[in-house]
Every structure is written in C-alpha cells, then in structure tokens.
C-alpha cells in the first residue's frame, strides 16, 4: 500500500500508473503517460471501486477532481479524474450504450456526490448503490429520459434544442 507518512505538503511525484498496474494485474488497460503529471488508464466498472479505494489511499491529499461523461457515438465513457501523488490520473470506464451504469464511489469519497449526479443528469449514466440520484444540473420539471449531452439527443419536445 502507499505510504501514509507523507506530509500533505509533500510533492514527491510517484509513478502512480505503474503502482496501479502492479496492484491490479490484468485489470488495467490502455495505460499511458503522455507527459509528466498526466496518466490515462482504462478499467472495467467491476473494479472501479477497489481501484478508487487504492488511489485515494495513495497519499493523504488524493482526491477526485471531477467525472467527465463522454458519448463517442459507439459507447459512453465515464472518466474519473483523480489528483494523486503529483499526477492527474484519468481513469476511463467504457460503458455499453444499452446499459450505461457505474457503481457509486460516494461512500469512498463524499466529494463525488455532485459529479455522480451531474453525469446522470446530462449524459444519463446510472449510478448504482447510492439511492435516488437527486437532480443537480437540470430543472425539477425537466422531462424524464432527456439527456442533453448525448449526441443523439433530439432536443426538448416542443422545439427547444441545443
């Protein structure tokens, strides 16, 4: 496990991607570090929670910057942007368009609350295991099943659209 003895001010940049690959052999795909301070990796949603737990344990200051939801046309992606040990680790979870769902990590990191609600409101990605997803970004009277950031969103009934 990662050392907890680090001071919060410690800036030692570790090879967090290598540590992640070593800790979860065979589970981490598309690992890339295009430049210092940036790393990318893809994991399945089945290991998202243990990976999150591992990353947040890597230094006392580790946190989730945000979650980006992407619609590539073929699939959805949820990208979890973690700031951990001097690297922005972008953890991609690929999701089938027919069943876009990720497990909640809110119990591991309360700061994920708003970001999970946001990817549900705008991209229609279900977040399981955290109870009802209260609306955050869209109005209370926004029609069900309308996810404006999806590429195939037809606009609101009645004409208003992007």
């Amino acid at each position: 496990m990662c050392g907890q003895e680090q001071q919060r001010s410690d800036l030692a940049r570790r090879d967090i991607l290598a540590e992640l690959c070593a800790r979860f052999p065979g589970e981490v795909g598309e690992a890339a570090a295009p430049r210092p301070g940036r790393a990318w990796a893809t994991v399945s949603r089945e290991v998202l929670r243990p990976v999150t737990e591992f990353l947040l344990g890597c230094g006392p200051g580790a946190y989730l910057s945000t979650i980006t939801a992407v619609d590539t046309g073929e699939e959805f992606q949820a990208i979890y942007h973690f700031w951990v040990a001097g690297t922005e680790l972008n953890l991609r979870v690929r999701l089938d368009r027919r069943e876009p769902a990720v497990p909640s990590i809110m119990d591991l990191h309360p700061g994920a609350n708003f970001y999970e609600r946001e990817i549900h409101d705008l991209m229609g990605i279900e977040v399981t295991g955290r109870g009802k997803l209260e609306r955050l970004a869209v109005p209370d009277d926004w029609p069900e099943g309308h996810y404006p950031l999806r590429k195939d969103w037809p606009g609101l009934p009645g004409g208003e659209s992007a």
Binding site: R8, S9, L11, G37, P60, G61, A62, Y63, L64, S65, W83, G86, E88, H109, P110, G111, A112
Partner: peptide
Amino acid sequence: AVALGTVGPTARASGIKVDVRRDD
C-alpha cells in the same frame, strides 16, 4: 477538506498545501 474534494484557498485554509501552479 480532502474527503469533500475542496480546492484552492478553501483547502489551503484547512492546512492542505495544494496549488496547481506549484503541483502541476
């Protein structure tokens, strides 16, 4: 402050030495 994901002066006022200008 860390668990709730605070940033900037709000985090630094809780003793978290985090600043993108220095860290990244």
